[in-house]
Design a protein around this nucleic acid. Structure first.
Lengths: 207, 207
DNA sequence: GTCTATATGAGGATAGAC
DNA sequence: GTCTATCCTCATATAGAC
């Protein structure tokens, strides 16, 4: 079964490259190392991917565009606002402390500027797609009067900025991950602040 | 005047390295290029700085630790809260769109993890020092009853996260700078949101 | 498709003359 | 202190056999 064997090696190479790029960045992930980790020769690696840049682009596209498989970002709002937003905020905070969000964040900031032709596309497929989904959720909460949302996109920016905070930055520079309790503490204070700022207006039009 | 000539060459080298590191990052800023840009030979460069890592550390320490010379972050609070915070927010947004803040942000995220022994010190001297100054300012506003600040450090995190938002990230990956109007629009919405969330409580202890 | 072996070039660092 | 010329390592990429 040639195809199966081929597919397996292909997947090994992709998987190795994915892990190495995310772990050590573009420069430090040499093709030698990728090949060695995947258990193939460099020539084989180059037979599948024309160049290192090419390999990088393919990996990043998959990582970046893959919809978040966690169950913390629902497609539509049901239930109580605070519970839904807390679930989302906790999931996203962890996504940026140890998960794929952190890996993509580092690769974007450290290396994406070298591939100007990829910037717009990846930005739209990654960060902007996430913002759109959050904005849609907040808009639904606004429509039901559970929050006072004038501009969903801006509100989404505010929520995302607050929940991420310094987490991806601190992690990227090499600081150790905060404890679970510390993450939840930060998430909770950001969440309560967000809910205060976007609380529905009362009958006199005040907050 | 040997010393003057020496000092001049020294400064040329430092200035070139500073600009190149900030512009293209650690890897892409080769010692060949630094020397060429400074108008000296590589041997001269190495006579002044033992290694590239050494040069990087010296540059980053100066850039990072230099107190912000802009006049948008006052040492102590006087005047009206909204005006002071608006001035601060606008200054900081621009600092992270085109200024030294952006350069330091990129160097930190992209390259600092390679120098584990520098992380803690630079983090304390840079981002944490900024946070402390903002926290002090917010604490003073809280003491005068102009804002409801329970935890100044956390409030400072919230303000900094909101004002920076996606700006340094977007700029780092290679997106063009937003217009002046766009910056001010984002700053204003972040500011109004912050003021809502930290508005002083009324006589019944409500917001 | 996959391997071993190698071409080619870039970049960090140094030797030795002045 | 400063230069020119050079060493050496390592990384991308390829040639050629199987």
């Amino acid at each position: 079964m040639k195809t199966t064997a081929s597919a397996t090696k292909s997947e090994m190479m992709l998987e190795s490259a994915r892990g190495l790029f995310a772990e050590v960045g573009y420069e430090a992930a040499s093709m030698d190392l990728v090949a060695k980790t995947a258990g193939v020769s460099k020539a084989t690696l180059y037979a599948h991917f024309d160049s290192k840049e090419n390999l990088f682009a393919e990996i990043l596209e998959v990582e970046n565009g893959r919809p978040e498989d966690g169950d913390w970002l629902p497609e539509r709002f049901e239930g109580d606002v605070e519970g839904v937003l807390r679930r989302f905020a906790r999931g996203m905070a962890r996504f940026f402390v140890d998960g794929r969000g952190l890996a993509v964040y580092r690769l974007f900031v450290a290396d994406l500027h070298r591939f100007p032709e990829l910037v717009a596309r990846f930005h739209a497929a990654g960060p902007m797609a996430m913002r759109s989904r959050v904005a849609r959720l907040l808009a639904q909460m606004g429509e039901r009067g559970a929050l006072a949302i004038d501009d969903p996109e801006t509100a989404a920016d505010h929520l995302l900025s607050l929940v991420q905070g310094r987490l991806p930055f601190d992690r990227s520079i090499g600081l150790p991950p905060p404890s679970e309790e510390e993450i939840d503490r930060r998430v909770e204070s950001a969440l309560q602040f967000f809910l205060r700022g976007y609380a529905p207006r009362n009958s006199r039009g005040e907050r």
